[in-house]
Amino acid sequence: MNAVQLAVTDGVTVAKRNSIKILRSMDLLGSIVFMPVMFVLLFGYVFGSVIDIPGMSYREFMLPGIFTLAVAMGSIVTGYGLTDDLQKGIIDRFRSLPMSPAAVLIGRTTADLILNVTSLLIMGLVGLLVGWRIHTGPLEALGGVVLLLAFAYALSWVMGTLGLAVRKPEVFNNVSSVAIFPLTFLANTFVDSGRLPTPLRVIADWNPVSAITQAARELFGNTSASMPVHDVWPMQHAVLASVLWIAVLLVVFVPLSVRCYKKATSH
């Protein structure tokens, strides 16, 4: 068995272990599943009446943003899981086994991808209940889901790197929140970026979260002809910009997380 096959088979085993762990951790399941649902209901009804979106309901506009927010929040689990395993010494046990070192990271990110699939499915159902609809064909809709999951996977590697760099679960909790909060809110997630003050608009327009959200809106058909047209490249070519962002994140953070993993486990 070559190195790649070994990494994949061992990765699947570790992913299975992580999935079982997630299923047994009710607080983790709850935070990933119910938190986004809470956001759908709270933002949908609290801000729904006061934020005006030309040509469509606020809830339809907001849902793709909530999907992006959810997968971004879901990526925190990757980093937290790695720091937790590091602290408890489980990774030291893995090191003593005849298994691929890459399997720990592959298994972790794969398990969290499965978790994100569940999260998106639940949110989609809640979205349908509050009035969200897909106005495009099944292929575009599937493309939207795949794009969101690919972004979730890329962000998992980012958070994995961060987790392996800080190594302490408590510290990671604080640092990841400070990273994810602005990333998801300083975007077009809840409000059209055209309504933001100029400095924030520039940040929002070039934020990867905005590109993913805009791409999801286009692929699900949650856009309106009455909405203002953005003259920035990532907003005009949102799907392509999203694919590029995902590729860049993976190219940078997969090797970086492997390097951080080696550093964290070399005593």
Binding site: V50, D52, F181, L196
Partner: peptide, 13 residues
């Protein structure tokens, strides 16, 4: 973060 984000994010909208 909260002060800046909510003021400028939702203020205009």
């Amino acid at each position: 973060m909260l002060t800046l984000m909510f003021t400028y994010l939702f203020g205009g909208a």
